[in-house]
């Protein structure tokens, strides 16, 4: 084989590879646009005021207001649980157990929890909360918005632990040394100096966690159960937007499909807005430390 033909072959391989990689990227973008387009066009069609004023009890004559309220409430309760625990746990990993064995294994297990199947976390909450509550109260409390929010908190928790851990590690060591040399106790250093320095990064994690748990359906099926009426009581069975979408998508009625699309659009916008916001925060953060 002549040198020329080898050269030609190498160039062709290269061009093909470039072409392939361009196509792959285009394919990825195509799917993104396809899914978003379908959601937006179907959803915009079906967004009406009644969506926010009526409840799911009236099915195709109704709306999603109880599901929206239920979702917001469960998301809020979940965040109230997972933000403090997650931030503190992340702080422990970064500041107290950075090189210890315990820290390494918790960090590792946290990464596993981050990718654990959400349906298994739902099973877990069913076993530790729904069943005992039902036994203790003779069934008057069983499935509940509270149980749903614990399941969601378990999904948000590892995200917050990980970002807090990473963000605190980004804080320059000089800051720690400076504060310690002034005789500041370590807890004060952590809360007032380090957490403050990493606050926007930690906030990024909080937003990402919210984005992640707000879209979850599977763990709610046997924890929050569902409710066709409006309720704000945390111990009631509670409706949620993703579960309502699941139910309506699984129905033959086109009227319910269009309500489901409207709900899908709402939730997609919410989740994507959160991830864009966190990205924005994070890129600002990066600039500050580079």
């Amino acid at each position: 084989m002549s040198a020329n033909s080898i050269y030609a072959r190498r160039r062709i391989t290269n061009v093909l590879a470039m072409l392939f990689s361009g196509c792959a990227t285009a394919l990825g973008l195509l799917f993104l646009v396809w899914i978003l387009w379908v959601t937006a066009s179907n959803g915009l069609h079906s967004i009406h005021l009644s969506l926010f004023t009526k409840i799911t009890a009236y099915a195709d004559q109704g709306g999603l207001s109880n599901a929206i309220v239920g979702s917001l409430l469960m998301d809020l309760m979940a965040m109230l649980m997972c933000v403090p625990i997650g931030v503190l746990a992340g702080t422990y990993l970064a500041e107290y157990a950075n090189i210890s064995k315990l820290g390494a294994s918790i960090r590792f297990l946290n990464d596993i929890l981050l990718s654990a199947p959400s349906i298994v976390l739902g099973l877990f909450v069913y076993v530790i909360i729904v069943l005992p509550m039902s036994n203790l109260t003779h069934g008057s409390i069983s499935f509940s918005g509270f149980a749903g929010s614990v399941a969601l908190a378990l999904i948000g928790l590892p995200v917050i632990v990980r970002t807090t851990d990473e963000m605190l590690q980004l804080v320059p060591g000089t800051l720690r040394e400076a504060a310690l040399s002034l005789g500041v106790p370590q807890w004060k250093l952590t809360v007032q100096v380090l957490m403050r320095a990493a606050s926007s990064g930690i906030l990024t994690g909080v937003l990402l966690a919210l984005a992640r748990l707000a879209g979850e359906t599977a763990p709610l099926l046997f924890t929050a159960f569902g409710n066709n009426f409006m309720t704000v009581h945390p111990l009631d069975k509670m409706a949620s937007l993703p579960a309502a979408i699941y139910q309506y998508t699984n129905d033959p009625s086109p009227a319910l499909h269009s309500i489901a699309w409207a709900g899908a659009l709402l939730i997609t916008l919410f989740v994507l807005a959160l991830s864009l916001l966190s990205r924005l925060l994070f890129s600002r953060k990066k600039v500050r430390y580079e």
């Binding site: 309760m77 509940s144 509270f146 009581h233 111990l235």
Partner: peptide
């Protein structure tokens, strides 16, 4: 949140499935 739980141990809806 905790006190809401404590105050009204009884849920208010009637559920069939």
């Amino acid at each position: 949140v905790a006190s809401t739980f404590a105050m009204s141990a009884q849920a208010t809806d009637i559920t069939g499935a």
